[in-house]
Design a protein around this nucleic acid. Structure first.
Lengths: 196, 196
DNA sequence: CGCGACGTTGATTTGCCTCAACGATTGTGG
DNA sequence: CCACAATCGTTGAGGCAAATCAACGTCGCG
C-alpha cells in the first residue's frame, strides 16, 4: 500500500489537508487502479458517471458532442489531473459528456458507491474535493471569459504558453475543438504564426 | 432570529443537509443583512472578495471587463442565488470580476473571516457549499458548451426559456453581454424573431 | 501495400462586429 | 415642473473573423 504508485496522489491531496496515516491508508484502499489502453471510452453521454479518476500516468480527454456531430473538448487531463463528470457523479443524473483515453494510461479511480463512505470516515476529505471543485470552477470561468473576449489566435497562444507539451501529446484537431474553432482554421493560424 | 427574512435561505440549505436547530441559529447569527441600493458596486476587479452573498430580494450581476472596456457578464443573481467570487474568497487572491446591484436588493452575507469558523462548528456545511459549487460548475459547463456549439439566436432562445422574467428585470445590453454578442446584434436578432 | 486518420491549402460564404445616426425613455438638477 | 443630458434600444452600411466545402499530401499502421 505504500507503493510508489500512490506518491503523486498523496502529495496532491495533502496539499489540501493534513491527513493522519490511518486515514490515508483508508483512502488509498478505496482506490481502484485501472490500466486503460489508448482509445478506451470510459464514459459515454447518456450514462451516469460512476467514478472520479486521478491520472497517474497518461492522458485523458472529456468532450461534448453537438447535434452536427462536432466535438467540443472540455478538458485534457494529463498526470495529476482528475477526470470525471462530477455533476453526474454527485447527482446520479445521466451525463452529457464523453471521456476517452488519448494514451495508454494508469488511473486511480474512486467509485460512486464508496465516495459517501469516504466522506464519513475521513473528515478532511470534503475539503479536498471542495478545493478541487474550486480550482475547476476558476479554470472554467477563465476559459469562458477568454472564449468570449479574446480572438482565437490569442487563445491559442495562451494555451501553448500554459501547456507547452500539449501539441506533442494530443492531435491538433482536438486542440482546435478545445479552442472552439475548426481544425482548418487552426491550421491557418499556425501558418500565419511561422510566417512572422 | 426566526424572522421571515431567513425563511428562504433556511429552506434552501436544508435541501442539502438536515441541520439541527442549534446549528441553524449559529449559521443565521453569522449572516450580515445588507441593504444595497441599485448601482452599488460590491466588488471591483483587483480587490479580494471577502463575502458570499445570498440574494434575499433584488437582483445582482457579476461581470468581467476586457482590455477594450467591454463587459462580459458572468451571472445574473436574483432571489435565492448566491453571488461572490468564490475562488478569490477561498484563496485570498485578488478577483478579476465586478459585482453590482441592478435593483435595490437585500443580501445575506457570509464574511471571509467567519467562514472557517462555520465549517468547524457546523459539520454539514462543507457539504452545502460543495453542492453549491457543483451546481455552479454544471451551469458553467453547459454555458461554455452552448457558447461554443450554438449560434447566438439559439442561445438567446434558451436563456428566455429558462429565465422568462429576465428581460423585465435587466437591461437588454447586459443580456447581450451575457450571450457574448453586441447589443446591436441582439437587437437585430429580436427584430428577426418578431418578423416570423 | 493500401486504407484511414490527420494536417494543409484555397475559394467562397456567413455570422457577427464596428461605426454612425437616430428616436424614445428616464431621471435629475435648476 | 420643465429642460436637458444620460441611458437605452433600433436601424443601416460596410468589414472582418471564422465556418464551410472540397481537394490534396503524408504519414502510421493493420
Amino acid at each position: 500500500m505504500n507503493e510508489e504508485r500512490y506518491a503523486r496522489i498523496i502529495g496532491n491531496i495533502s496539499r489540501c489537508t493534513a491527513m493522519p496515516y490511518e486515514q490515508q491508508q483508508k483512502f488509498l484502499a478505496a482506490l481502484e487502479v485501472k490500466q486503460v489502453p489508448k482509445k478506451t471510452q470510459l464514459l459515454r453521454a447518456g450514462e451516469v458517471c460512476d467514478f472520479e479518476a486521478y491520472v497517474n500516468k497518461g492522458c485523458m480527454r472529456s468532450y461534448f458532442l453537438d447535434e452536427h456531430g462536432h466535438e467540443v473538448t472540455l478538458q485534457f487531463a494529463t498526470e495529476d489531473w482528475w477526470v470525471s463528470d462530477v455533476v453526474s457523479m454527485a447527482e446520479g443524473k445521466p451525463s452529457r459528456i464523453f471521456i476517452e483515453a488519448l494514451e495508454d494510461s494508469e488511473l486511480l479511480c474512486i467509485h460512486r458507491g464508496k465516495k459517501e463512505d469516504l466522506y464519513r470516515d475521513i473528515p478532511g476529505l470534503e475539503r479536498v474535493f471542495r478545493m478541487m471543485l474550486l480550482r475547476n470552477l476558476g479554470a472554467l470561468q477563465d476559459r469562458l471569459f477568454a472564449t468570449m473576449a479574446w480572438p482565437a489566435e490569442e487563445r491559442y497562444a495562451a494555451v501553448l504558453k500554459r501547456f507547452p507539451e500539449l501539441p506533442n501529446r494530443v492531435p491538433q484537431h482536438m486542440i482546435a475543438s478545445y479552442l472552439g474553432i475548426t481544425p482548418e482554421f487552426l491550421s491557418k493560424l499556425r501558418a500565419r504564426r511561422v510566417a512572422k
